[in-house]
Amino acid sequence: MSETVAIQGHIDESGTFKSLKLKSGLSKELQLDFSQVKSISAGGLRLFQVWLAELGVEQLVLHRCSQGILDQLNSLKAISQLKARVASVELSLKCPHCSSGVDYLAQRGQDYLEGSVVHRESLDLPQEISCPGCGGQVPLESEVSSYFAFLKHRN
């Protein structure tokens, strides 16, 4: 598997992501850790797509996408345009019992899978997860399913 590179800040029309340090001899698959990406604008996504094409990237794999980033990518139907695979999604919830923050890393293949010619898209998150603060149950799937709209946006 190729190296995962972390990308940070805003992906916008300034194109600062172009300064990302990539190893020479980049493979056609690019693995990006998106957990530190703060926002993606339409103009930024357009530039990002051109940049990937210039690099010769044929398969983009995104790791640790946040809900906020997925909201933006979904609104632009960007995952299918980028022909990207979302390897994991960082879900952040609030415990309804003690108000602690509760995180869950949803993984492709285990919790969700995009549709293909042989199978339909699937979302199979746990109904609830335990709060590490109070041990209470935190509802999951019903709260976060909208972030997985990209599963239906396949070309």
């Binding site: 703060k38 926002s39 906020g68 909201d71």
Partner: peptide, 19 residues
Amino acid sequence: RRTEDYYQARLKALRDSGS
């Protein structure tokens, strides 16, 4: 509607990042 989805998502992302 699509534009509204984009606009709301963008507003939220910028607010959340303190921009």
